[in-house]
């Protein structure tokens, strides 16, 4: 019996010899993606992850926006936005914002680096399975691109009665968003496990 690929979305079995691994292939029945092509380089994934880590640090170190109205000036950082909810007694909402804009991106980047750097150096990473599982869970809650759009909405609403100056962190967030989306697309679960299996050979 030839190797079989089972569709993750409808359970239909496909014969592997009818599918080339270099191509993105769709399920014949439900049109879900069966597999992502094997192509991304380990080095570029590590480079992107390091880039994202630096951008995340900058995004949190500098103010996102500064607002001036009636001679008063106020600014906020990424974490400050989450603390705003907390300060007003909505701790759970603050936690949700903190989780989706700071913790999830951070864990996503760190877990990737802790798995990929040992693979690149050719050693067997510790806790690889757990890290990859955490990565898959945490990725779902990383909402940088939605946050950027939310920030845009807030700025448009404020611009009517105050002077708004975007900070360095806002631009870092835009770059971080692009970095993370590229990183997610080149480190699909299949690709990550391909790298892991190659290192074991």
């Amino acid at each position: 019996m030839s190797p079989v690929i089972v569709c993750p979305s409808c359970d239909l079995a496909h014969r592997q010899d009818s599918i080339r691994t270099t191509e993105r292939t769709q399920c014949a029945r439900c049109r879900a993606w069966l597999q992502h092509p094997d192509g991304a380089a380990l080095d570029s994934a590590i480079a992107l992850a390091l880039c994202a880590l630096i951008l995340l640090a900058f995004s949190n170190a500098y103010p996102l926006v500064t607002m001036q109205a009636n001679g008063n000036s106020r600014d906020t950082t990424l974490i400050g936005a989450a603390l705003g909810f907390y300060a007003q007694g909505y701790a759970s909402l603050g936690a949700l914002v903190f989780l989706t804009t700071v913790i999830a991106p951070l864990l996503q980047i760190l877990a990737l680096l802790f798995v990929l750097i040992p693979l690149w150096r050719g050693s067997r990473p510790r806790g690889q399975h757990t890290l990859l599982r955490v990565l898959m869970q945490v990725r779902v809650w990383s909402f940088m691109e939605v946050f950027m759009l939310g920030a845009l909405v807030a700025l448009v609403r404020l611009a009517k009665f105050a002077h708004i100056a975007p900070g360095i962190a806002l631009w870092c967030c835009v770059l971080l968003m692009l970095c993370l989306s590229e990183l997610t697309s080149i480190t699909s679960p299949e690709q990550l496990w391909r790298w892991v299996e190659r290192s074991r050979e």
């Binding site: 926006v65 009636n70 600014d75 603390l83 007003q88 909402l93 914002v97 939605v146 939310g150 404020l158």
Partner: peptide
């Protein structure tokens, strides 16, 4: 995930617009 948009907008508004008594 896109419906989180307004939650983020409110979080920024509530943090920035805290001008005492105005």
């Amino acid at each position: 995930r896109w419906s989180m948009l307004d939650v983020y907008a409110v979080s920024l508004l509530a943090t920035l617009v805290q001008i005492q008594s105005i």
